[in-house]
Amino acid sequence: MKQFIEQLEHENKLPPETYKALLEGYTSELAEFVFSRAQATREKYYGRTIYLRGLIEFTNHCQNDCYYCGIRKSNRDLTRYRLTPETILACCHKGYQLGFRTFVLQGGEDGYFQDEKLIPLIEAIKTAYPDCALTLSIGEKSYSSYLAYYKAGADRYLLRHETANTLHYSKLHPKSLTLSKRLQCLNDLKDIGYQVGMGFMVGSPYQSIDCLVEDLLLIERFKPEMVGIGPFIPHHATPFAKEVAGSIELTFYLIGLIRLMHPRVLLPATTALGTLDPNGREKGILAGANVLMPNLSPVDVRKNYLLYDNKICTGEEAAECQQCLKNRMENIGYQIVVSRGDYTTSPSVS
């Protein structure tokens, strides 16, 4: 198996049957080999630096009813909220003072936030913080809307594809949502010029090894600037409430494989990793990740933006969370830096 890892490291691609063999042949020893090669690859391009993204969860209203998501439309027990532009800008101000140079506006697909509200908000953030990157994560929109956000100043867009298998996609979403539409949105974003992020859940219901192979092949073809993956974690108010959480060990392994496949990718160690394992984010970094996304949202609304159960950091102030992460990264030999943390096209000079 190690020869396949070395092949991936040098060629950045593999045939489908080889990806399948690597997934079916997982062992902890093989994973450690993947992690060692992934660390070396990441450090070639990014050194031992870790980038921060300040996450602002600005609305938990959503018109969709995805079967895995805690803020789905059918969750009637959830206290819904929308942050005002003034509150969002206050979150950015706090984040900037703490050293954040990327802000991520994330929310459900909320019909209230039409273009006439989003475009002035994007312009206000970019005017106030011209040296910062702005990432949007607000779901499926029209090409014209994506273009308008980009012209207003948005730099990046996160839109997880969730699964690259059409049948699997249909088992995770209502009929109103299709994989073809999701992929069209990703292609639109890339065509416009965004730095684009995609990703998937590991261990979601009905997922097979073949599904994961399709995910890897899609990432290999699309070459996004960002990839976000995390283990599936059930939420009590969804149809998948009694399903088993995804494997965190397999998630780490996939992070390493994605790093070798796409050496320059911006790859977060997600909150879901820290939810399933107290040292999950550190292990994610050691598997090949190089991004962390602390929460800048007001503390009083965080408990209402739970995509899955037992999410961590729902009660910490941003400053406390950042200092904690800084210490934890230093303990494993990495350094959080004040930087936009853009996708790089050349090896690190550090």
Rank of each mutant, 00 (worst) to 15 (best):
E24C: 14
G25L: 12
S36K: 11
E9I: 04
N304C: 01
G284T: 07
Y67V: 00
R101M: 13
I138P: 07
Y129C: 14
D65T: 02
N331C: 04
L286E: 07
S74V: 03
Y157K: 12
T18Q: 14
Q114P: 00
V337W: 13
S142K: 15
I122L: 01
D155E: 03
N295V: 12
N60R: 14
G288M: 10
K2L: 09
M293Q: 06
K303V: 00
L254F: 00
G284M: 07
C66W: 04
P130G: 06
M226G: 00
K94I: 06
D277T: 05
S145A: 12
E116S: 11
H262C: 07
Y194D: 14
E29C: 00
E330H: 09
N295S: 00
A241C: 02
Q3A: 15
E214Q: 14
V338I: 14
G274A: 05
L325Q: 05
T102Y: 01
S297E: 01
Y308D: 00
G193I: 12
R259I: 02
N12R: 11
R281C: 14
I50L: 06
G25R: 09
Y129E: 03
I71Y: 10
H168I: 01
I50Q: 08
Q114K: 07
T178N: 03
G274Q: 01
G230L: 05
T87P: 04
Y194E: 09
S339N: 10
K44D: 15
I336N: 14
F103N: 10
G197H: 02
E123F: 04
Y206T: 06
V291G: 01
F222Y: 11
I138R: 09
H168L: 05
V104L: 08
F113I: 00
I119Y: 08
R82N: 12
S74Q: 14
N327K: 03
E320W: 11
Y51Q: 07
H262F: 06
F33G: 05
R48E: 08
K181H: 10
R37I: 03
F252E: 12
Y112S: 06
V301L: 06
D65P: 05
K171Q: 11
